Simulated assay, not measured.
Amino acid sequence: MCIECLKLPPLHRHCDLPAKIVIMASEASSSKGEFDIYQTYRKILDDEEMSPPLAAILSLSQLMVESNAGTMFELVKELHDGAEELKRHTTNPISLNAGCELFIAFVTLFPHESDSFAELKTELVKQGQKYAKEAISYRNKIAELMLDFIKDDSVILTHSYSRVVMRALLHAHKTKRISVYVTEARPRGLGVKTHEVLTAVGIPCTVVLDSAVAYVMDKVDFVLVGSEAVVESGGLINAVGSNQMAIIAKAAHKPFYALAESYKFHRLFPLSQYDLPTHNPSILSFPSLPPRPFVTPPTTSGVSPPIAKSGIDESLNVTPTSSSERSMSAEMTAKNPDVDYTRPDLISLVFSDVGILTPEAISQYLVAMFAG
């Protein structure tokens, strides 16, 4: 089967996935010949165009190739175990979860007339790889759908760095004049990467402070963001800061559009930020401080304790930092979330390879997709 796959003509430089996965699988195997699903997953992600859900689908496909399962029950159990292994090594498993869910549902619901389980497993592997190969083109479909909503001389606000958003902007740039504001997106600063790519191709682009989103909102025509996952409520999980952008866009009566490949549709129904799988007690927690010593109040009424010229109580013994030193430490950054949840009522439309959907339509699509 793999030899036949290698004969398939590549659609573009990222589409020769069957050949790539075979090479990665052999490299990820240990000296004992054991398949390491996480190492395979990491090697697939070395390709910058590959997103976590697709990498998870390809990794699980290769797990089936390596599997010795003799029944469907054993195979599905191995897939669940493989998915758990991937999640265990990932601090933010949301988009990875979406890919794993989709692939396991596909295997479970796959219609077949095979005479033997070996033939069925071979067909499942072939179809899984075929899906991943086709899924690479989904961003192009989304970019084409988005094109009609981008008018000449549009001013667009985007957030951080998103592969599908970049594809849409670069596609629009071929035929239309556009200008882009992009948030810095701290702490990783991926907005700077967006700025570099857009500027290199001639798209006017300005980086905006995360705290200046409200300031710039009146200058833009609409907001365009990517996604880590689109959930059953029709809401969006994306890089932290997306939610506040949506709130400000709603207040300013500006459309807020989300772009999402269908393999990022996730059976998850968060009601708040604290329902996300990535939330844990350490996020935004207060540090444990030693108890303050008891200070006897002054006996003279009407006399205040002495105040330093800086306006800081000298008893606090605080040494002011210089402006160059006033930045978040790694410990401070670690206490902040990587992603946030945007409610469906703040989202105008979701552009996907399956069409242009309202947030309300997302739930219906998810039910149909996982019901077979």
Rank of each mutant, 00 (worst) to 15 (best):
E27H: 06
V367P: 02
T321M: 09
L124P: 02
F35N: 10
A308Q: 01
I362W: 05
E261M: 05
H80F: 08
S285L: 01
I237P: 00
D221H: 15
I247V: 15
R163V: 05
F256T: 04
V231L: 05
T194V: 06
L86D: 01
C5H: 15
N280W: 03
T278K: 00
S282I: 11
L60Y: 02
S352F: 03
V350C: 08
S322P: 02
F370L: 14
S310F: 00
P204T: 10
R326S: 14
V197Y: 10
L190D: 14
I104L: 15
I150L: 10
S242L: 07
G241Q: 02
K32E: 15
L63F: 04
E144S: 13
A98R: 01
S67Y: 08
D221W: 14
D275L: 00
S227Q: 12
T158I: 08
S322C: 08
F73M: 12
M72Y: 04
I248C: 07
F35Y: 15
Y274Q: 05
V207N: 04
N238R: 01
Y215D: 07
F265K: 04
Y263A: 02
H171A: 14
F103Q: 03
K174P: 04
G372R: 05
R292Y: 06
E196I: 15
T358Y: 07
P111V: 03
L268G: 00
C100D: 02
S51W: 04
A212V: 04
R88S: 10
V339I: 12
S288N: 14
S348N: 11
S282D: 13
L11T: 08
T300G: 03
L316I: 07
V180K: 06
R13F: 10
S272A: 06
P53L: 02
Q129W: 10
R343S: 05
P290L: 03
N243L: 08
V367C: 07
I142P: 06
L268Q: 01
L170W: 06
D36I: 04
E66S: 15
A69L: 13
S329R: 11
F117R: 12
P204E: 07
E48F: 13
V201Y: 14
S304T: 11
S116P: 09
V223G: 12
P255R: 07
R326P: 03
S324F: 15
T40N: 06
Y161A: 06
V76H: 03
I347P: 03
S51N: 11
H89E: 12
L45R: 01
A185D: 15
V182H: 07
